[in-house]
Design a protein around this nucleic acid. Structure first.
Length: 304
DNA sequence: TCCTGTTTAGTTGGAG
DNA sequence: CTCCAACTAAACAGGA
C-alpha cells in the first residue's frame, strides 16, 4: 500500500462509486443540480485519478446517470442556455449505501414507471415549464416530494440529506412531539444556503469546501482523498448511513439553528413540490426487488 | 464534429 | 454457487 505523502493517494482510485461521486458533485452545487460537464469538472478537480482515462470513466458516469433512477434529468430553462440538461438527485434516493461502504450500495434506487407520468406532469409544473416543453426524454422523471414528509417512515429510504439524517435523534424527538415538519425545519433554521457547503463538507470531508469548486488539498495526515477513512467508514460507535450523511450525528437542538443541511433547499425546483407518495412504498419495494434490469432477465418479467 | 444521453452486453467482485 | 451492484465497452441517436 502506498503511504500518504509519498506517492499520494490522490492518484489512486477513490473508494467511491460513480454514483457516489456524482451525488457529491450534485450536492456540492448551490442549486443541487449540475450539468454533465460540471459533474466531470467536480470529479476531476477533486480526484486526480479521474484526470486520466476520461473517456472511460465519463462514459461510465453517463451510463450511471441514465441507468440509475436516483439521478433525475432536469431540462434547462430558456434562460439557462447551454448544452445538455441538469442532473439532480432524487429526493428519495438516500440510504442506498451499505454502512461505511462507498463502493457498494445496499440496494439500487429505482422509481417505478407508473409514477413517471404523473411525476412528469408535476415536475413540469414545478419547473414552470409549459406543457409544450414536455420532452419525450422526460419519461423517466420521478416524483418529487419534500424530504422527510413520507420518506423515512413509509419508504424505508432516507435521503442522504434528509433532515433526520442531518440532525439525527433530535429531529426524531421533535417530530415525535407532534411538530409538523415545516415547523421543525423552520425551527432548525432550514435552509441556510451560506452554510450548505459546510454541511456537505462535514458529510464528505474530503471534498472540502464544496461551493468553492477548488481542487481538494491532500494532506499527508489524512487518508486517501484528504480524509481519514475511519471517519467515513467507522464513525465511532454511531451507526450511520453510508454515504451522504453528517459526520456529526449528535447535535444539540441549541446548535442546530446555526447548522444547515443541503436537504430541503429553496431554489431547487425539485424540492418544492408536494406530491402524494402514498404509492411509494409498494413501488419502491417492488422496484428494489426488480433491480438489475440489465443483469437479470427475470426482472423483466416482474416489471411487466 | 463533439458532446450528451440512452441502451445493451459483458465482466468483476462482494455478499449471502 | 447465486444474486446483484458496479464497472466497462460500445453502438447509436440527437442536438449544438
Amino acid at each position: 500500500m502506498p503511504r500518504p505523502g509519498k506517492n499520494s493517494y490522490s492518484d489512486q482510485k477513490p473508494p467511491y462509486s460513480y454514483i457516489s461521486l456524482t451525488a457529491m458533485a450534485i450536492q456540492s452545487s448551490s442549486e443541487k443540480m449540475l450539468p454533465l460537464s460540471e459533474i466531470y469538472k467536480f470529479i476531476m478537480d477533486r480526484f486526480p485519478y479521474y484526470r486520466e482515462n476520461t473517456q472511460r470513466w465519463q462514459n461510465s458516469l453517463r451510463h450511471n446517470l441514465s441507468f440509475n433512477d436516483c439521478f433525475i434529468k432536469i431540462p434547462r430553462r430558456p434562460d439557462q442556455p447551454g448544452k445538455g440538461s441538469f442532473w439532480a438527485l432524487h429526493p428519495d434516493c438516500g440510504d442506498m449505501f451499505e454502512n461505511g461502504s462507498f463502493l457498494r450500495r445496499r440496494k439500487r434506487f429505482k422509481v417505478h414507471r407508473s409514477e413517471h407520468l404523473s411525476q412528469q406532469q408535476q415536475q413540469q409544473t414545478k419547473l414552470g415549464l409549459a406543457s409544450s416543453e414536455t420532452a419525450p426524454g422526460m419519461g423517466r422523471l420521478p416524483q418529487f416530494q419534500p424530504y422527510g414528509v413520507n420518506g423515512p417512515q413509509t419508504t424505508g429510504f432516507k435521503h442522504p440529506f434528509a433532515i433526520e439524517n442531518i440532525i439525527g435523534r433530535d429531529y426524531k424527538s421533535m417530530m415525535a412531539s407532534g411538530l409538523p415538519l415545516a415547523s421543525v425545519m423552520h425551527h432548525l433554521g432550514y435552509p441556510v444556503p451560506s452554510q450548505i457547503s459546510n454541511m456537505v463538507g462535514s458529510m464528505w470531508p474530503h471534498v472540502g469546501v464544496i461551493d468553492s469548486m477548488a481542487p481538494m488539498p491532500v494532506s499527508p495526515d489524512y487518508g486517501p482523498f484528504g480524509v481519514p477513512m475511519k471517519s467515513i467508514c467507522h464513525p465511532g460507535s454511531q451507526t450511520m448511513p453510508a454515504v451522504p450523511v453528517p459526520i456529526k450525528p449528535t447535535v444539540s437542538l441549541g446548535s442546530i439553528s446555526s447548522m444547515s443541511g443541503p436537504g430541503a433547499l429553496p431554489g431547487n425546483p425539485i424540492q418544492i413540490c408536494s406530491p402524494s407518495a402514498s404509492s411509494l412504498q409498494l413501488d419502491q419495494t417492488r422496484s428494489v426487488s426488480t433491480e438489475g434490469k440489465t443483469n437479470s432477465l427475470h426482472s423483466v418479467l416482474v416489471h411487466s
